[in-house]
């Protein structure tokens, strides 16, 4: 379980996350909505452990341990992984090697790459000249090898072309154990009960909801998390009335 308790974060002395409370139970996937600059990526980076995000108060508990001050790699080894929106290029490191590093052992990266239609990129340097959609598939491929228990997705569908959107959507569903059909010899109920993976997905468009049955949706507005609701309902509300409505919500609840 991930439990975030009254988290307050500053970036370069500017307050960017205010009193965040969030709980993601094993098997649950949450969707995070919010306008640009509202702090969504900052929340993900703080959970991942990026040190420029300075936690001034509150706690992050993962699998029962306080990880608030743990380093990025310690968190990764505990089972937190992230799909970045704009990851850096690593010159001279082949995507093939990167996948092996993520797995932490020798493995057949070709098979894995086939699943995200990425074999032809394995011998290219990590993220070097990749298009938006290629970056997304590369990130998913790395997560498939890394197999984290909590996955943070930063706009996984942005920049992905129509041809690949269902591939990306289905891959995320599979990573989060949300594709019940692919699990063999199990009833749907059994598979659902045995589901352990946790997800937190940032989305603007909501396309991802077509493929991933998210459990909860939340809106982050100006560093304040609010409006826990059915993700579809939130999306419909935002589409109709914009984030203005969320502001009203926040004012009401505070």
């Amino acid at each position: 379980m991930l439990k975030i308790d009254d988290l307050q974060v500053t970036l370069e002395d500017k307050e960017i996350l205010k009193h965040i409370d969030l709980e993601i139970h094993p098997g649950e996937t949450h969707v995070l909505f919010g306008p640009n600059g509202s702090g969504k990526t900052s929340l993900l980076m703080t959970i991942m452990g990026y040190s420029q995000y300075n936690v001034v108060a509150g706690k992050i508990i993962f699998k029962g341990k306080d990880i608030t001050h743990m380093s990025i790699d310690e968190r990764a080894r505990m089972g937190i992984g992230m799909s970045y929106q704009r990851p850096p290029t690593i010159n001279g490191l082949k995507t093939r090697q990167m996948v092996k590093l993520c797995a932490g052992h020798e493995m057949d990266e070709n098979d894995l790459a086939k699943q995200v239609n990425f074999e032809q990129f394995l011998d290219r340097d990590v993220n070097a000249g990749f298009s938006g959609g290629e970056i997304k598939r590369s990130e998913l491929l790395q997560l498939m090898a890394q197999k984290p228990d909590l996955m943070l997705f930063d706009e996984p569908e942005s920049g992905v072309d129509m041809e690949n959107i269902s591939l990306v959507g289905k891959t995320i569903a599979s990573l989060l154990q949300k594709n019940l059909l692919t699990i063999e010899n199990k009833t749907r109920m059994q598979a659902k009960l045995e589901r352990t993976k946790m997800g937190l997905i940032i989305t603007h468009t909501g396309y991802i909801l077509e493929y991933v049955a998210a459990d909860k949706g939340q809106v982050l507005y100006d560093g304040i998390l609010s409006c826990t609701n059915n993700p579809r309902e939130i999306l419909d509300c935002i589409e109709e009335s914009g984030y203005e409505e969320c502001v009203r919500c926040i004012i009401k609840t505070n």
Binding site: G49, D73, R75, Y84, P88, I90, L101, C102, Q142, Q146
Partner: peptide, 11 residues
């Protein structure tokens, strides 16, 4: 940024 990226993969 590159170091942090690789660390988030467990290195």
């Amino acid at each position: 940024e590159e170091i942090a990226y690789l660390m988030s993969r467990g290195l």
